[in-house]
């Protein structure tokens, strides 16, 4: 059995609600979406049980009805699992994944600055990547955001 299939089977065996929800788009690529109430347990399972020990990146996404994040986790063998979860636009609160990956700090700061997420457990520190005098409540990667000169027009 292919490694990808085994991973999908393990995930579906552990979490019944994931059945038929996982896509393998090509060899070494798995995509799935998890409701946020189950996210931390699925994430924990992927890291600790399925050996996805590398956090490649975190992509913020504005899905209009909600704000989402896709966590791109890799195994040594090259398989990447893309774990997506979403929270409401009004209360975009996520827990930090820094206890698993220290490098998540800067990726999470990016989500705070560019999408307006609130990350519980993220230590105080410099913002990234926007300037210190960037206006409050302006989140440039949200779909409804316009550059300042276009706003005036």
């Amino acid at each position: 059995m292919l490694n990808e299939e085994k991973i999908i089977q393990d995930l579906c065996g552990k979490f019944k609600f994931l059945e038929n929800q996982i896509k393998a788009t090509r060899p070494r690529r798995i995509f799935l979406e998890v409701p946020y109430e189950h996210f931390m347990e699925v994430f924990d399972f992927c890291v600790r049980q399925l050996s996805f020990t590398q956090l490649c990146a975190m992509s913020g996404l504005d899905d209009v009805e909600k704000l989402s994040v896709m966590y791109h986790l890799a195994q040594e063998g090259g398989i990447v699992i893309n774990l997506k979860t979403g929270v409401s636009r009004e209360q975009p609160v996520l827990k930090t994944v820094m206890p698993y990956f220290l490098c998540a700090e800067i990726y999470e700061r990016e989500l705070v600055d560019l999408f307006g997420f609130k990350i519980e457990g993220l230590p105080d520190g410099n913002r990234y990547p926007l300037t210190d005098d960037w206006p409050k409540g302006e989140f440039p990667l949200r779909k409804d955001w316009k550059p300042f000169d276009q706003k005036k027009a």
């Binding site: 560019l114 990547p129 926007l130 440039p140 990667l141 550059p147 300042f148 000169d149």
Partner: peptide
């Protein structure tokens, strides 16, 4: 590392 929001100052 920094890539990313082009903001044009001095509109007009």
């Amino acid at each position: 590392t920094d890539r990313l929001v082009s903001v044009k100052g001095n509109a007009g």
